[in-house]
């Protein structure tokens, strides 16, 4: 099995793996967006900046506090999530009664400001963040070498998506979330503190973005634009999967990562546009997205 469809197997599998890794980030980020949109009706354009903050906080924890990757994996989402809670309480919460556009404008502006601050402070050339020693090296799978860290990213992202899905579908707080997505006023009239639930949801969505940022730090260089490069594709993923659909965003995220990877093998010229072509086709056929409810 040296060649598959005339393509050398290592190249094919290498691109598939790369696609899976990109897909893992698409899935984690679009999942956070979907959770936030479902509950708050806000399209969180600051999501890319919050992803980038996760990576930077990981770098800072190591640089200034000597805390390694494993600490960062826990602390960075908590810290950035708290920052999200603060944003929601002080600004975003004031916009729920207004049109979608206001939330979009506010979060877009916040994203630009956050990015600007980091660019001012750390420049845009990028900072190195080393793969933790426990995860460096590669496995010989027989048909290809698999860098351990990349395998780790795919597995952890998948587990995180599954855990988020379980919380939303199988727990009490998840049932509050689902019910509030349908009729928040009634849920509140049953005695549930919906405003606090919204704050926590936003914080959790932001923490998920920051978690993805920590995972990304050793793969991409830590730089202020790392989020905005990714987030445009993630929004396409969200549109394809269907706005607000949890499962849809996860499946679409991984699926499109793989499609992108395969395109790099078979028709590299289209690899940066293929997702948008898919988006256009899906929008023509199913305007609510693959998993969206019209």
């Amino acid at each position: 099995m040296d060649d598959i469809f005339g393509i050398p197997a290592p190249l094919l599998f290498g691109q598939l793996l790369l696609g899976l890794i990109n897909g893992a980030f698409y899935a984690l980020l679009s999942l956070g967006l979907a959770v936030i949109f479902g509950m708050l009706n806000v399209i969180n354009f600051a999501h890319g900046a919050q992803f980038m903050m996760g990576a930077f906080v990981a770098w800072m924890l190591l640089e200034y506090a000597g805390l390694n990757y494993w600490w960062a994996l826990i602390l960075a989402p908590l810290l950035v999530g708290l920052f999200g809670v603060l944003l929601e309480r002080t600004m975003i919460a004031r916009l729920y009664k207004l049109d979608h556009l206001y939330g979009l404008l506010l979060t877009f502006g916040l994203g630009l400001i956050i990015e600007g601050i980091f660019r001012n402070q750390y420049g845009s050339s990028g900072l190195p963040y080393r793969i933790p020693p426990q995860l460096s090296g590669a496995w010989d799978l027989g048909f290809m070498f698999m860098p351990i860290y990349r395998g780790w990213v795919v597995i952890v992202a998948a587990v995180m998506c599954l855990a988020t899905w379980l919380v939303i579908e199988k727990t009490k707080i998840g049932s509050y979330l689902r019910a509030s997505t349908e009729n928040a006023a009634l849920v509140q009239a049953f005695g549930i503190n919906v405003p606090r639930l919204m704050t926590l949801t936003y914080g959790a969505g932001v923490a998920l973005a920051a978690f993805a940022g920590v995972l990304a730090a050793p793969i991409y260089s830590v730089n202020p634009q790392m989020g905005s490069n990714l987030i445009i594709i993630v929004f396409a993923v969200v549109v394809i999967g269907g706005m607000g659909s949890i499962l849809g965003s996860v499946i679409t995220g991984f699926g499109l990562g793989i499609i992108e990877g395969l395109t790099k093998v078979f028709y590299p010229e289209a690899s940066s546009t293929v997702i948008f072509v898919v988006m256009a086709i899906v929008l023509l056929a199913r305007p609510a997205g693959l998993f969206g409810r019209a």
């Binding site: 509140q188 009239a189 919906v194």
Partner: peptide
């Protein structure tokens, strides 16, 4: 009162 506190 807010509606959740009324229900409470």
């Amino acid at each position: 009162l807010r509606s959740d506190l009324i229900a409470r």
